[in-house]
Amino acid sequence: MNIFRLSGDVCHLVAIIILFLKIWRSKSCAGISGKSQLLFALVFTTRYLDLFTAFISIYNTVMKVVFLVLAYATVSLIYFRFRKSYDSESDSFRVEFLLVPVAGLSFLENYSFTPLEILWTFSIYLESVAILPQLFMITKTGEAESITTHYLFFLGLYRTLYLANWVWRYHEEGFFDQIAVVSGVVQTIFYCDFFYLYFTRVLRGSGKMTLP
């Protein structure tokens, strides 16, 4: 464990909590892409199957459970409790265009052709594109509430910190996981455009982020 990975995990947890509380307290999921949240729940489900077979540490187990619970709780808020406020019209990204290539690639490019390994690989590839429906929805509506942008900021920060974590681990331990790193770099690149808008608009105190 290193400071980059720990702070990355904390940012990830903060992002998920920010989103959950935003929906829970505003009793609305307007502007939130339910599809992205479904994809994240699928990422955690397919990645954390080793929850019962491999014990890494208390921290690892606790964080996996917390992420799974919060992911499914957020999905249930969007699709059940506050479904009237769900803007399915703007959340129109075709997720099959993500799931099919990701599933295909996880069968082609993996470390070993076993169910657990393929599902883990699937979750890694899926995580790098899971935010696209949300980013697409923001471009479609042309705006995002500032709390939603803070959620995206912490998600992007978590991914950026994971890149630093891999540099550190490569330098310290010679650790290098090609699938995770390549996929993580792709994922972080998707946030660059958002980061630019976030720093130039939201942090200038304009509150809402409106796209040009």
């Binding site: 992420f67 470390y111 974590n165 995770a180």
Partner: peptide, 10 residues
């Protein structure tokens, strides 16, 4: 030999 990821990351 390829360094198998210990899958210790979240």
């Amino acid at each position: 030999e390829r360094h198998i990821n210990p899958k210790d990351e979240l």
